[in-house]
Design a protein around this nucleic acid. Structure first.
Length: 470
DNA sequence: TTTTGAGTTGTTCGA
DNA sequence: GTCGAACAACTCAAA
């Protein structure tokens, strides 16, 4: 029986995988390949947390493939050379893969396709990561959207749910073919800082579906309100699974649609859907504005008066030692679990870009290295949104007050106290702004910085001045 | 071409 | 405590 290469990248799943399914439908025995080629993603080669996730995800995938009698072929190096080597060795007659959308990878994939087709090997590509191809949604004038609401309205009108593609039951026999092991890829960081991650996460297809089940049984009810409260599981926590394609947005959408819900819960579902919409919008923007991962989208921010980086101050933000409890809680949750609640991401980002007035790329780089769900489109657009440099017509005066935000969204300070245990004995509401009573702070939390990195009111007004000129 | 309505997530201040 | 106004002006998208 003829063989075809199925090149997996960020679609690390067997179910609902269009490339895999089509290869089989076309009568081929699939040879499943993963090629580790981080340099091709430069300057956004996967960060440390994300690489650690990938290690576990590939391990899970490899085991899933063994269960159906196959074998995941692993390689490292230049994608074209490795693919050609494996194609020749296996005698594969076609190549199937799903699209990626980062500018450098789109260019690489185009070269792969060219080089294979020139050698007479047919290539088929698919959309498996998004509900819509980024170029599919257009304004009436044929231009890309720059505002979410009309983008999503248009997109929803085009949404087509398809049936789930079945997982393969049989794969090509590749027993004699050389392959690296997952360990050979050196994806785990040298330091064992990620060890605590895995009590929170189960990378891989099975873990992804469990996470979706948990969400559908629980947090989706009341999502609209609860998703803003960082001390509970009010969000889906599907972001890393989605990033690596361990589950598809189509699968999620179908599952959520099937829920029997009340009228108000339908509103929750709609809100959750629009969060997936934001993911689509980020990819739309990155595709149409490929410089937006490295430059402010709004050209007026060329030459903006960002503050000079003070490495010691930056380090205090990174390690959760700013003296502003909600900021420190978020940054420590990130460091310890590889993830941070969305509400808190906005607060810490606003603090960095507005109160410290550091360039959003500083924050984007730190998130890139420490988030297990680091995703170029989402990360870039998210940071630009908070910094006010993106598409959104953000009023310059939208500056989060970390104290107000923690009072509103963490009223019992349970989130703060979970991640900043030094503050366990500090009463509400002092725990939201311990610098107001330095002597009490010193007594109750001697190890906590009782003088904040910056004065909130003062830095806010400096930011207002800097931003109002734009 | 022109017009019109609208734009994720906020804060502060004064009545 | 609650509420509305002010904080600017601009760009986008569709009619």
């Amino acid at each position: 029986m003829a063989k075809a290469l199925v090149w997996l990248r960020r679609d690390l799943r067997l179910k609902d995988n269009p490339a895999l399914a089509q290869a089989i439908a076309d009568g081929f025995q699939p040879v499943i390949v993963y090629i580790h080629s981080p340099l091709e993603e430069s300057p956004w080669s996967p960060g440390a947390a994300s690489s650690a996730w990938l290690h576990h995800s590939l391990t899970a995938l490899s085991q899933d493939i063994v269960k159906i009698g196959g074998r995941l072929l692993l390689a490292a190096g230049g994608s074209i050379a490795e693919l050609e080597r494996i194609q020749t060795l296996s005698g594969s007659q076609a190549l199937y893969f799903s699209n990626l959308y980062e500018p450098s990878l789109q260019a690489r994939d185009a070269l792969v396709q060219q080089s294979f087709e020139r050698r007479g090997v047919s290539v088929q590509r698919f959309n498996s990561a998004l509900l819509f191809e980024p170029w599919q949604i257009r304004t009436g004038a044929g231009t890309p959207y720059k505002v979410f609401t009309p983008f999503w309205r248009n997109a929803l009108g085009q949404l087509q749910l398809r049936a789930e593609y079945r997982a393969p039951s049989q794969l090509a026999d590749t027993a004699g073919m050389p392959s690296l092991t997952v360990d050979d890829l050196n994806l785990l960081p040298v330091k064992d800082w990620h060890a605590g991650f895995w009590q929170h996460w189960q990378p891989g297809e099975e873990g992804a579906h469990e996470m979706l089940e948990i969400f559908c049984d629980g947090a989706i009810k009341g999502y609209r309100e609860q998703r803003n409260l960082p001390d509970r599981t009010g969000t889906s926590k599907l972001s890393p699974h989605l990033h690596f394609g361990e589950i598809s947005p189509q699968q999620i959408w179908r599952q959520v649609e099937r829920l029997r819900v009340s009228e108000s819960e339908r509103d929750d579902v709609r809100h959750f859907g629009s969060e997936l919409g934001w993911r689509e919008f980020s990819y739309h923007l990155l595709h149409h504005f490929p410089h937006s991962s490295n430059h402010s989208l709004n050209p007026r921010f060329e030459g903006f008066d960002w503050a000079k980086i003070d490495p010691a101050a930056l380090a205090r933000w990174q390690r959760g030692q700013t003296g502003v409890p909600i900021i420190d809680a978020g940054m420590r949750e990130l460091w310890q679990t590889g993830w941070m609640h969305n509400r808190v991401r906005m607060i810490v980002a606003s603090f960095l870009c507005k109160n410290l007035r550091y360039h959003w790329l500083e924050g984007a780089h730190w998130f890139w290295d420490t988030l297990v769900d680091a995703d170029l489109a989402n990360n870039s657009q998210g940071w630009q949104w908070t910094a006010g440099t993106g598409c959104d017509a953000a009023p310059y005066f939208r500056i989060f007050n970390p104290v107000t935000q923690s009072e509103r969204f963490d009223p019992k300070a349970s989130y703060i106290k979970r991640w900043v245990p030094e503050l366990a004995d500090m009463p509400v509401p002092l725990v939201f702004s311990p610098w107001l009573k330095p002597s009490v702070c010193q007594a109750l939390a001697p190890d906590y910085p009782c003088i904040p990195l910056v004065d909130l009111a003062e830095s806010r007004s400096r930011a207002l001045t800097a931003y109002s000129g734009r």
